[in-house]
Amino acid sequence: MTTILKHRLFWPSLILVVMLGVNAFTSQQFVTIQDGHLFGTLIDILRGSAPLILVALGMTLVIATGGIDLSVGSVMAISGAVACLLISDLGNQNSIGSVLLIIGVAILVSLALGLWNGALVAIVGIQPIIATLILMVAGRGVAQLITDGQIINVRSDPYSTLASGFFLTMPVAFLIAAGAVALTVLLTRKTALGLLLESVGGSPTASRLAGIGARRITVMVYVVLGGFAGLAGLIASADIKSADSISAGNLIELDAILAVVIGGTALIGGRFSIIGTVLGAIIIQTLRVTVVAVGIPPEANLLFKSVVVVALCLSQSPDFRAKVFGRFKSRPAVEKVGVPA
């Protein structure tokens, strides 16, 4: 039991279970089946968490190498803008082949943006926070140029399936995120890639002296994050059936970093937890739904979220738990040694 309590994911898991319990008690339909699909608050949480899971997943790999990426929101905006612009120009927006091709183009653009960030960090040598800040500011402007400052609406059933479709009773958006998680876990835990990421983040100099291509690995994780952010942008734009270059992915980089931290990955790089990141992303989305479910005023949403996050982070601190919940062990009695007469 003590080992379970000391596990870094125990307290996040407990808080998630509590919030889900609150939603199950307050919502009229927590989980139900309609038209052969699962519906309800739980399904809404899973579907709504998909974009954040994708972004946080890529952010975990970047942070594992000692980096950071503040441009994921802008990449999402660009990806959605490219896709919606091209789809709006189609004569038949319901053409599955054309829509799939456009989705591929949008993801390629996102990969190129990730390559740009990786090159600035690994090759040019710019600090990650500065290099990605450049694209964070400029990328939002690029997205507005693509859409000409307007909201581009699309009416494409194949495209909207990314966000609102179902497959095997589960939301397509969540299945996409789950597939990305499974692939990442497979590559990082069943191959040497995970060890290489941790070595680069733990000690770049030592990894370079050991013959590890730190630059190539650094560029790779930024490219992967760019692709995941682009895919998240497609899901977000498909959800509202339009490209909003101003609000798309706004501040999602902060939630992604928060999800990574909740999952137990250190911001200084090194060891990382994919499952912990997924748990953190679902917690953040569940928190949003819970705030609405318990009737907290919208003005207090951010404050309530901050309080819960602080409590969660403190609960993960072994030192804090030892001071607040720990019991002081009684010192063993000192035997009196008799003094010979």
Rank of each mutant, 00 (worst) to 15 (best):
P298A: 11
A180M: 14
D44M: 10
G227I: 04
G202K: 05
S207C: 07
D157I: 13
A214W: 11
A50N: 03
I130W: 11
I53D: 02
R215E: 15
K305V: 14
A173F: 04
L57Q: 01
G48M: 03
A266Q: 11
V307D: 07
I217K: 01
A210G: 14
T132W: 02
A81K: 01
V223Q: 00
V109N: 00
V31N: 08
L312R: 00
K241E: 12
A143M: 06
N92D: 14
S330C: 13
E253D: 09
A77G: 02
S71W: 01
F320V: 12
G80W: 00
A229N: 09
V99S: 01
A238T: 08
L225T: 08
P128D: 08
L168K: 04
A259V: 07
G67N: 06
V181S: 01
F39V: 14
L251K: 15
L175Q: 12
W11E: 02
V289Q: 13
I235M: 05
L196Y: 08
L46C: 14
R8P: 00
I275D: 15
F320L: 11
T277E: 04
A83K: 02
L86Y: 06
M220T: 15
R8K: 11
F30Q: 05
M19D: 03
S247P: 03
I212M: 14
G276I: 01
G213P: 14
S330L: 09
V221C: 02
D44A: 14
L70R: 00
A333G: 09
I257R: 06
G149D: 05
A138V: 14
A177F: 06
A131G: 11
S330M: 06
F325L: 07
G97L: 08
S315Q: 05
T3F: 11
F228N: 02
L186M: 10
G194E: 01
D35N: 15
E299Q: 09
L231S: 04
F320Q: 07
V337E: 14
G125T: 15
D35M: 14
P332N: 11
Y159N: 07
I262P: 01
V137A: 08
T32S: 09
S71F: 04
L20S: 07
V75C: 02
V105L: 15
L120N: 11
P298C: 13
T205R: 15
A256Y: 02
A238L: 06
A180S: 09
I68W: 01
A293I: 10
L196T: 15
G280S: 12
G249E: 05
G66R: 03
S156H: 06
S79E: 06
M170Y: 08
M136L: 09
A341C: 07
L101K: 12
Q150A: 13
N301K: 12
L314C: 09
S98R: 05
A173L: 06
A64S: 12
A81D: 02
S237M: 03
V137I: 07
I43Q: 00
G227C: 05
V142F: 09
Q285P: 09
K190P: 02
A210D: 14
V219L: 15
R215N: 15
G263C: 08
I33G: 03
A248K: 07
